[in-house]
């Protein structure tokens, strides 16, 4: 089967049960998407599928064919410039251990593009699908607000 990830096509041979998350990590070598629970309970595996933030641990790889998958590795520009959300996470120290961070960033991009980032309360609610055990939540909210304004401007 073939998967479209970050603009590239990957031909992979997979078990029918393989999730998109395991396909990315174990077969394609994109380990930025993280496994925190494997049951849709933490958000660490969040990727964008056709622009929509979804959980790669509850998505079958076979069902992801013909869809455009964006992972954390696909956000920075080829010249190395970070996506505004990535930069905002650094600017606001919106992570500690960093393990939930790729999922937080992709979820945050989804949150902004869905129009759910108008207020801090909205961000808190719509970012609640991403657990951060280090509890960098206040800084995550600040980062999303910064990037929201930059994404609108850019």
């Amino acid at each position: 089967m073939t998967l479209r990830v970050n603009g590239s096509t990957h031909a992979v041979e997979l078990d029918a049960r393989t999730t998109l998350l395991d396909a990315l990590r174990e077969h394609i070598g994109l380990t930025g998407s993280k496994k925190g629970c494997d049951h849709g309970q933490c958000g660490a595996c969040t990727v964008l599928i056709d622009g929509s933030r979804e959980l790669s641990c509850l998505t079958l790889a076979v069902s992801s064919q013909q869809r455009e998958v964006t992972t954390i590795e696909g956000l920075a520009r080829p010249d190395g410039d970070l996506h505004p959300m990535q930069q905002a996470f650094i600017d606001h120290d919106a992570f500690q251990c960093g393990y939930c961070t790729p999922g937080q960033i992709l979820s945050a991009i989804g949150c902004v593009s869905e129009g759910h980032a108008d207020t801090p309360a909205g961000i808190r609610e719509y970012m609640s699908g991403n657990i951060c055990r280090c509890a960098a939540y206040p800084n995550i909210v600040a980062a999303v607000m910064q990037a929201r304004d930059q994404m609108a401007g850019g």
Partner: peptide
């Protein structure tokens, strides 16, 4: 219900 990601799916 659930989370934003799950509701998208």
């Amino acid at each position: 219900a659930a989370s934003a990601q799950l509701r998208n799916m």
